[in-house]
């Protein structure tokens, strides 16, 4: 991945052709003529998956003979069952969820990591900020009770006393913070703070990934059987993803606009999508991806993931990760 794209439509087209040319050079690409596959997203359609939309719209998949359907997720649509059932070839999950699924008998591998840094943040208001983990002591934090292990893991990683933090059970809402019922909220960098900013409420975020909380997020998963039997399709799928996300990175505003135009019935707010698209970039792209390509991970990042996941009660081995597909994608 050496090209750095700029905005114009013509350049998009050029990129498409370049991609097609590249695909044509690979002998395996000719073996499948428009194979239909599905990818299960982890949430409703939004700019969170904009790279995939670009790959689809710009033909990065069809050029390789893939017809990819993107299945929306939702609060009552877990990713793992359709992937296990074979409805979807690949699913978008996260290392902690995948680890749990594997513990419960699912034969998953993590093939690529879209979010290099976990998007969990502690969101606070500027007049009463949480800038580093130690600031949490003596504060009231609003979060789903189910996330208690996350707070405890952060405490262990940063040597503060988790019991000195008062947990107030809340769900997805800024109201308790604004009403002063809590001092901070556990949220994603890309949702609550973004929505608050668009609503005109300034907030302070502390990214937990910057303080040792290493859990790969927005990971691409597939079953061992699928990897063995449909390897070429998965490679082609991820290659298209990589191309799509690189274009996304080049112009997040355009990606946001394309997302909003593509899904007129989702009720997407352009301002929210633009800001979210912008804030995703530092989570998804790093020196590592610059050097090796989209979705990359190393033994070191896997090791720190295993360490953090152990704090969350998940016992896993490096075998959960399989980089061979990604290596094929990026020609390493």
């Amino acid at each position: 991945m050496t090209q750095s794209f700029s905005v114009s439509r013509r350049r998009f087209l050029g990129a498409t052709l370049a991609g097609a040319g590249a695909a044509a050079l690979l002998p395996s690409a000719k073996l499948y003529a428009q194979t239909s596959i599905r990818m299960q997203l982890s949430w409703l359609h939004s700019v969170q998956f904009a790279g995939s939309y670009i790959a689809q719209d710009d033909g990065f998949w069809s050029d390789q003979g893939l017809d990819v359907a993107l299945d929306a997720g939702g609060p009552n649509a877990p990713v793992e069952p359709p992937v296990v059932a074979g409805t979807a070839l690949v699913g978008i999950s996260a290392a902690d969820y995948t680890a749990a699924a594997v513990e419960n008998g699912a034969p998953f591998k993590i093939l690529a990591v879209a979010m290099q840094k976990n998007p969990f943040v502690i969101t606070s208001l500027p007049e009463n900020p949480v800038n580093e983990p130690g600031d949490l002591e003596g504060k009231r934090i609003g979060m789903a009770l189910a996330n208690a292990p996350v707070l405890e893991a952060l405490a262990t990683l940063n040597d503060f006393d988790a019991s000195a933090v008062e947990v107030v059970p809340t769900q997805y809402s800024a109201a308790p913070l604004l009403a002063g019922e809590v001092d901070c909220l556990l949220s994603w960098e890309t949702d609550l703070p973004v929505a608050m900013a668009v609503q005109g409420v300034e907030s302070q975020t502390m990214l937990m990934a910057d303080f040792g909380y290493a859990v790969h997020s927005q990971t691409y998963i597939a079953t061992e059987a699928a990897i063995a039997e449909r390897r070429n399709e998965i490679v082609a799928l991820l290659r298209g993803e990589a191309q799509g996300w690189d274009l996304y990175r080049a112009d997040t505003a355009a990606a946001a606009r394309r997302t909003v135009d593509r899904f007129p019935d989702q009720g997407l707010d352009l301002a929210v999508q633009e800001l979210q698209a912008e804030r995703q970039v530092p989570l998804m792209f790093s020196e590592l991806t610059d050097a090796h390509g989209f979705g990359w991970f190393t033994d070191e990042t896997v090791a720190s993931n295993i360490e953090t996941l152990a704090l969350l009660g998940r016992k896993i081995t490096p075998e959960l990760w399989d980089r061979s597909i990604l290596e094929e994608v990026h020609g390493a």
Partner: peptide, 27 residues
Amino acid sequence: LVGEFTGAERGLGVLTLQAMRDLDVTA
């Protein structure tokens, strides 16, 4: 509506989720 929470592409249920996520009280 609850069915739409299982990964629908459109509908009032989808809009509900989006509005909640965007803290769009009016919506």
